[in-house]
Amino acid sequence: MNKLYRLLILSSVVFSLFSCDKEDSLSDESVVTIEQRTQNELDVWIYENLTLPYNVEVKYTWDDGEVENEFHVTPPKVEKAKQFLEAYLNVWIKTYDDEAIAGGNPDFLKKYMPKQLVLVGSPQFNGDGTMTLGLAEGGKKVTIFNINEFANVIINDWNTAEEILEKKRDAIFMAFHTMHHEFAHIMHQTKFYPDEFKEICKVDYTGNWMDVFPDVAQLKGFITPYSMLNENEDFVEIVAAMLDQVKNSNEPKLYTTQLKDDQGNLTLDEGDVYLSQWEWTIYSWGFKSVLDTTTWRYHLKQSAEAREGYDKFVAKVDIVTSYYKEKWGIDLYSLQKRIETAVNTLIQ
């Protein structure tokens, strides 16, 4: 009888090993569905002008997976997205591309430019009263906010045609500050900039940058208060400022102002200097108008603190421009000229 039980148990064990061996055939159809959008005119334009030549994906319709859930933002108006993308192609992509080709680095842009561009119509309002205008993620994705206000200018009844053009020009220059800023992050995340840069203003970096007025930031050697957040933001803000202050880069403008001596100290002698917008920003670093009580005339003064800030800033600019030239073959001054030409063509 025991043998019978053993036999029964053995056979049941053997049976159990095979009993669940059942293989269903796999379905030919994936369970992962990808929602396909119907392509509109702008989608076709994006594909032909950005995706095919530069391998860039642009998202401008609402996709909550592309923005942070804790913030409430809205997609851009289609016409503003189109306006931005046309400017993006001409003012940003083509200028960088041409400059990189001229600098002997023809693959630069296709290799390093953000491959995904997400456009958001509204700003992203933060809890601390600030608003985010751009985000870069891992060198791949850049999100640009506030597209609905792209290149918007306030035009008054009394503005001349030239003044209106000037406003539009300025608005486009400024609108790409965020792109220049975010792309500069990709640059320094890919190839580090020299450590000397970090030393120049290291004692003045602060998380409370939003409480610092622009003129105070300048005295400490920063182009914007936001530059004071940390050395990386400082680095990219310099690049962005250089590339959004490009007016008169092709044809410097005449300034009749107080001249500087050989050591770069401001004198009381007046004269003519021809400077681009960026050069004037540096030239007039920390200038204040003061009243001379002996002559009762106002003149410009660069305080010792302002001079110190100027020296720090110029040192940082030298590092930034050398870094771009040596590491990437990009001459930022030449790029300024290209951008100015592109903007002028765009607004005609």
Partner: peptide
């Protein structure tokens, strides 16, 4: 999902300062 905005509906959606 309203994937692109329109001025009629979105005054109730758009964030402001």
């Amino acid at each position: 999902r309203f994937t692109t905005p329109n001025e009629i509906l979105f005054w109730l959606i758009n964030p402001t300062y």
